[in-house]
Write a protein that binds this DNA or RNA. Structure first.
Lengths: 214, 214
DNA sequence: AGGTGTGAAGGGTTTCACAGCC
DNA sequence: GGCTGTGAAACCCTTCACACCT
């Protein structure tokens, strides 16, 4: 399915999980508003998963939830590795652990001897050398890459070699992995600079408005 | 300009900054590869900023850098506020501080009395009540929102009311701000679940490949 | 020959608008 | 009447292809 739409499906699921057992049915425009999309878009996103609502009751919450989970989750293990337990990694660990019991970070890797073999947020930190060994043994398919830029490409290749097929990459550098490995880049600095650009533009627009309003 | 392209312009600038004084000229395909985009896309992204390269030398690094900065940065202050110094916020502070000397986080806000009035990474933490006061006094236009979901909408509105025109939002909820305020949403849980989905799909594809290859 | 700038084509995503249904 | 599912249109973004330049 379309890349963008998959992301939104996870938002629908997340919202529905909290609604479950508070209400049994929901209309597209209600759910859409909670997620921040248009009703038309929600309905279109739902089309490929084949779950149908009824015109006068909307969607059955439990049923839609089940259908979404079936399409979003594969048959796999739903375990995740965290590569790099630095400043950012150490924050991501509790972040994901607290939020999503369905996707569990079960192994972390770092080079710092101070961190190796410690357990952080219920997750053991291994020496980076053991990356392939642990990922293969645990059959981990998803890795979060939060290492310094210089080592990111190497780490990504090693993870892919050990069986990882999905990477959430925080390093600001293009990875080089086999075609079938899915990479989602999150570039926080880019995001902040983008916000700054449009924020500055708004200032100009406001000032322009002032001159025309005066 | 187009939303996506602006993001990439920041990547070109970041890369060029490191190249500066190591080489004086660069071709589109070289820079494009470093950033992870196609050469055609880079040239198209550069079109609106009006900086022209020469066919046999490419782009002059210093000149392009200056031109990019002129278009990306407005006339404003380039200061940022961090709202919410919890698990994620405490990581973002050193992250941005270490990376980007041009955009400085100069004020943070939290409700935890333990944190208030302390200085973290050179940034003072204020009581959340003083949000409007400090943002207005410092003329901050950009804020990073890293508060719990329940308080995000309120914080965003207060920030916008105090003069913020750009928000980098980590809370998984749609904000409600005036039209002219630019919002960039970063939903880490969505990103991870998206990766998981495609990672699982790849497993299936691989297995399908196996059956056809056998 | 091997670059750049750009019109035109292509592909993906979102919105519109409406038939069909309860 | 007000909802759903969906073809069609609109929009945005990326790639192609090529004239032009050195």
């Amino acid at each position: 399915m379309r890349e963008r739409a998959i992301g939104r499906l996870t938002l629908y699921r997340r919202t529905l999980r909290e609604l479950d057992e508070k209400m049994t049915h929901i209309f597209s425009h209600q759910l859409a508003k909670m997620v921040g999309v248009s009703a038309a878009q929600l309905r279109r996103d739902l089309m490929p998963i084949g779950y149908e609502g009824s015109p006068n009751r909307g969607y059955e919450v439990a049923g839609l939830l089940a259908s979404l989970s079936q399409h979003l989750d594969g048959p796999g293990s739903h375990t995740v590795a965290l590569i790099g337990v630095g400043n950012l990694g150490r924050a991501l660990l509790p972040y994901f652990t607290a939020r999503n019991p369905h996707l569990r970070v079960i192994a972390a890797f770092d080079t710092d001897p101070q961190k190796i073999d410690r357990i952080i947020c219920g997750c053991r930190v291994y020496a980076l050398e053991r990356l392939e060994e642990v990922i293969a043994a645990e059959e981990i398919k998803v890795a979060i890459l939060a290492v310094p830029r210089d080592t990111a490409i190497d780490c990504a290749q090693r993870a892919a070699g050990a069986g990882v097929t999905g990477l959430l990459n925080f390093a600001p550098i293009p990875l080089e992995v086999p075609r079938q490995v899915f990479v989602e880049n999150v570039d926080l600095t880019m995001a902040l600079e983008k916000v700054n650009h449009f924020a500055q533009r708004t200032v100009e627009v406001r000032e322009a408005d002032h001159t025309t309003t005066d």
